[in-house]
Design a binder for these strands. Sequence first.
RNA 1: GCUGGGGUGGCGGAAUAGGUAUACGCGACGGACUUAAAAUCCGUUGAAGUAAUUCAUGCGGGUUCGAUUCCCGCCCUCAGCACCA
Length: 793
Amino acid sequence: MLISLYMNTGYDFKKIESKWKNIWDKEDIYKTDIKSKKEKYYILDMFPYPSGSGLHVGHLKGYVGTDVYSRYKRLKGFEVLHPMGWDAFGLPTENFAIKTGKDPYIVTEENVLEFKKELINAGISFDWNREINTSNSNYYKFTQLLFLKLYKKGLAEKKRASVNWCPSCKTVLSNEQSIGGVCERCDSKVEIKVIDQWYFKITKYIERLLEDSKDLQWPISTKKMQEKWMGKSEGVEISFKIDNKDIDIKIFTTKPETIYGVTFIVIAPESPLINQLTDKEHKDIVDKYIKNITPQSEIDRKKDVKTGVFTGSFAINPINNEKIPVWIADYVLMEYGTGGGMGVPAHDKRDLLFAKKHNLKIEYVIQENKSDYKKSEIIIGPYKGQLVNDAREKIINDTPSAIKKTEYKLRDWSISRERFWGAPIPIIYCKHCGEIPVNEEDLPVLLPTDIKDYAPTGIPPLSKSEKFMNTKCPKCGENAMREAKTMDTFVDSSWYYLRYIDPKNKKEIGNKEDINRWMNVDLYVGGSEHAVGHLLYSRFITKFLYDQKEVNFKEPFKKLKHVGLIYGEDKRKMSKRWGNVVTAKFALEEYGADTVRIYELFMGPFEQYAFWDTQSIMGIKRFLTRVWELQKIISLNNIPSDSEIIATNTLIKNVDEYIEKGKYNLSVSEFMKYINKIEDIGSITNENLKKFLIVLSPYAPFITEEIYYNIGEEESIQKTLWPKIQKINIKETHIKIPVQINGKFRGEIYIKIDSSQEEVMDIVKKDTNLSKKIDTKIKKIIYIKNKIINIIK
RNA sequence: GCUGGGGUGGCGGAAUAGGUAUACGCGACGGACUUAAAAUCCGUUGAAGUAAUUCAUGCGGGUUCGAUUCCCGCCCUCAGCACCA
């Protein structure tokens, strides 16, 4: 029974994997020497939430990709920092804890152990000496310190404002967490609530965030997404006087040249001007309308029907003194610009819809050029006949009260949460002194351990712990209360990449010299879903630390790569709901780590999504069995044939190139081509087998280590260096080139290198097959030396 | 609607400073071994045709001796964003 199992699997991966796992662990082989003299390379994965549902093969793909690159860089002589940790605070853990009734501390610990075990089983070369955990007080002490630093510079601030509220998670969400008007965690419809919230003033950094992104080696789509999210638009602010009233309405527009076409003014339903603008006659309708509209969530207002009511007031167009009605409209957002806009139905789609619905005048003032708006022609007013591009400045100058202005869509980052499982905000409220920051020496502000019921209610759970809440004012020493809200987990993850460099430092985030030496992250890999959240926050925090002279770099992640999702065999997203989840645990036990690693990279381009396929993975298993069998055909004399040398050189060169380009799937093809070739030759020298194993080792660390050991090497394959190309003295005298007739491939011939056209034609004419085809008159010959010949007849 | 990707065999995918399209793998078919199956090994495999050859890289044009690659105009599809004035 046992024997047949061995025959089926080819080699006993379980035995090999557990053997080397133990040896590597004992030798602490992945330990990074921060003080090493070697050139540094920092390669980072986005750290995971250690959720209860465990690790599946999709998570693994990213880690395998970075692991191949890390191992490769070590072989290339770099000191590599490749750490891992846990984004342990936050809703996934907390919700899991609530569901299971377990303590979140215990839940975190259990999940972390499970995740870590699978990562080790997969042979990922993380340096576990540097493991971090955001829910550990040694870590969140510095999250709180970061808060204090921002607070002291006026960049952390409590404001009363309308916020996105998730009725199911019972907490506030940032704009980045409520994209599309739904909660990113639970898909509930987001509501709008007005409450006190803490904000980090990321908007102060917006210009620098835009400017510096130009130099980042990031996917274009991700950079564009950030750019769009920040939403810079340059335009003009114009004041419209209200007829018979002492009020001005300010509006923002990016198309001041359409001012001759303004036929109404629209203001947001939240506008403070509404009371003054509404006359008696319209008061009832306006009140009713506003009462109806304001409690609506953003998503309900985002529809094509543009509702609105007339206020009874008229504004005066400053350019031509025309009287135009002022309306309240739900498509105008209070948060953007001035909360009001000029209605130009002829040249704005939304205004057009609104005008049609409410029978407002439509006046065309521009002949629009579809391919380039700036080349549109003005057809009304003093600049009739001119292009928008030329007339815009003049029109701005002509418009009284017009001021150039730049508007952005990005809002400040809301960071406080009404939840338990997060870092407490280090602020104290004192009756006498007001809002006072905790002294830095008093950090960390520890999460209380005496709260049993931390299920969300909307009231911060920390407020239930008297032990936590009651404290002394750091300034006057009187009794005072703590802030009961905790920080969003994106604060934890906005600086974690710094902590790996010096994770045990108790005094500061980390040793400055080491941080400055090891940052930036040379390669950062993770899902594209963090494009506008985490990645933007991290850039902001890095810039802030730069300004405080804490660090000497302005960007955290030099190069960014996204990893494509793995879908289930049924082509649906892996989910418990469909029962199509392939867990890392299952795959590793069933196929072995080396097979799973190679398979995941061979599925397709790294950045692209792929479908799990239990048949294809067998191909990789077969491949590794053939690798194992190479041991049986080692040649005795150790003198490689020319073809063996050429094949090995090609392998080394191509794999090198493909790894550098991140084209892991193509390097796997190279390994397969190589083994096909060697099997054709029938033997391999010890020397070249070693080279093959070394270049394969980043992909399949276990089997290569075992064979390397079997063929007599005493030191780990991981401690060797990338093989060099062997110089050979084979002078190629002849090469094969394709022959085309009338542009179509018709055959190939062997020619002497650097033959002339005449010499090549002689060979073509001697070739019986080809000469038959060119018996008629030849019109023209195109010959590209050593490459191709095309005969036109 | 906007932004960024993609459309190549039965399937995953190779190949773009224009030069033998379909590498590598999966699957399928045929064969060897086996009492048999699995595993393994050896062939074949874009389509049509006995063959010469013809037709095939989403569709329609163009440039070129030659186009998957470059240009123009479409169609389809995936992802993200979307009342931001």
